[in-house]
Design a protein around this nucleic acid. Structure first.
Lengths: 253, 253
DNA sequence: CTCTAAAGGTCTGAAGTTCGACCATTGACC
DNA sequence: GGTCAATGGTCGAACTTCAGACCTTTAGAG
């Protein structure tokens, strides 16, 4: 006789259905393309800059050089990058790189629910990152390079001459805050959130008024971090994310 | 002559080094083992329960049945599960399943820095999840099953007859809160956080006083969610995570 | 008792990924 | 101007994963 089983707890939806996540194996190529595209979109590799050597990049992404080269090749045929051989050569990011996800609401059809989730997630993790960064600053854990990077990222946003550069500078600022939080998990979360945000912002027109408002908040965030004021950094960043979310929710339905 | 390049912004540590993440391809097998082990550890599949049929599980994890079978086979030889064929058969989780990550500080040597990060991350995402769940409840978006699941999860924690079952019930409660937040991103984040927490808790002795304190907080969290009080749910969950973190930080150095 | 459905077990060819060794190109330095 | 080192380009053998068809076992329905 079989002994009675301890059954799985009754839930509206079985937990395994929501907890187990798809494994993305056997398609490292696509994941590579995606990550590089994200890095380029977010301005980590701005137009005109060079990607790291293939051997380094392959190690960073933990894929073989062969797979990485496939990915770069895809970006090349998409017109996003250009490659030159020889010493001093390499892969360069091109200017006109709106190849992936071109402007327009069409790009986000069917993702609205998911994007709503993305905005909520962002409004949780980014304030957390800002708070931790402030706490680290208060504990005097910033190097002079750290301070310089944050200041530079803030300046870059203000000085951005056009919309595309502004968007990239904005992402870089947020990613820098995440990096200064010292948490690898938060860096990952913020990177994902920024990419989702990028998708949404591409679909709507940018209003100068919003940019101005945003700049004020950016300055307040950085000031709070430098002041080592954890709760204020958290609060201001939360407000910043909420404002963006409200704007987007209004426009995306 | 090559035109001047827009260089990558100067930062203390290049952003690509922290933003680009390893691709885990070509090792779906290991990822499978890991996810199943997590699900079992966290009590999603408690001892005595059956895993879903291989065909279903393979689809859930988006791997081929062959790969999934390899993973199950690994768990079987680790003594974690048992498999029987035929109708009504399947793979059953066994009682003595502490095969992965056995108790003791040895299991977390070299991960202390990472675990500190995990605690900070948890103290950000779990309160966020609790807050969203409360907000959803306030908007009356809970089904009766949702309410029942939350109540049942809370009861299970209180009724747990021993430490191992208590640990699993605790995880299930937190995962249920995450599920009720309605955010897939948060479910993922909380799952990861709970697994890290599990690793740490296995390394220290559990004090009855802590369990009692914890139970009080659990009730307060669930009450806040049912009351639809977003900020209180957030605050109480934050306190709960902070308390656990303080306890662990003290014991793990 | 028999049949059937539901589960795990097995097999094979195609396709993707890895790793390492080696080739080709080109700018920088002497 | 020549050398060299850094960089991309190419190839192939070994491994992993996939997809799905098919087999075996077993409990329950009739």
């Amino acid at each position: 006789m079989r002994r009675p089983r301890e059954t799985v707890p009754v839930t509206a939806e079985r937990l395994d259905r929501v907890v187990l996540r798809p494994i993305r194996a056997h398609h490292a190529f696509e994941a590579c393309v995606e990550q590089l595209a994200i890095a380029i979109r977010l301005g980590i590799y701005p137009p005109g800059s060079m990607l790291p050597p293939e051997r380094d990049l392959a190690e960073l992404l933990a894929v073989s050089r062969a797979t990485l080269r496939e990915a770069i090749s895809a970006l090349r045929s998409a017109g996003v990058v250009r490659t030159r051989r020889g010493r001093g050569g390499g892969t360069e990011v091109l200017d006109a790189a709106p190849a992936t996800g071109r402007r327009g609401l069409g790009a986000i059809i069917g993702r609205v629910e998911d994007l709503r989730d993305a905005l909520e997630f962002r409004a949780i993790v980014e304030p957390g990152a800002a708070g931790l960064a402030a706490a680290r600053c208060a504990r005097d854990e910033f190097s002079s390079d750290d301070r310089a990077a944050l200041t530079a990222a803030l300046d870059a946003v203000d000085r951005a001459p056009d919309e595309a550069i502004h968007r990239r500078a904005d992402s870089i600022l947020h990613l820098t805050v995440a990096r200064l939080s010292g948490s690898t998990r938060l860096i990952t979360a913020v990177t994902d959130a920024q990419d989702d945000l990028h998708t949404m912002l591409q679909a709507i027109p940018v209003l100068p008024r919003n940019i101005k408002h945003s700049s004020t908040q950016h300055r307040a965030i950085v000031a709070a971090i430098f002041a080592g004021n954890e709760s204020r950094a958290n609060r201001v960043m939360h407000q910043h994310c909420s404002d963006t979310a409200a704007l987007l929710r209004g426009l995306l339905g």
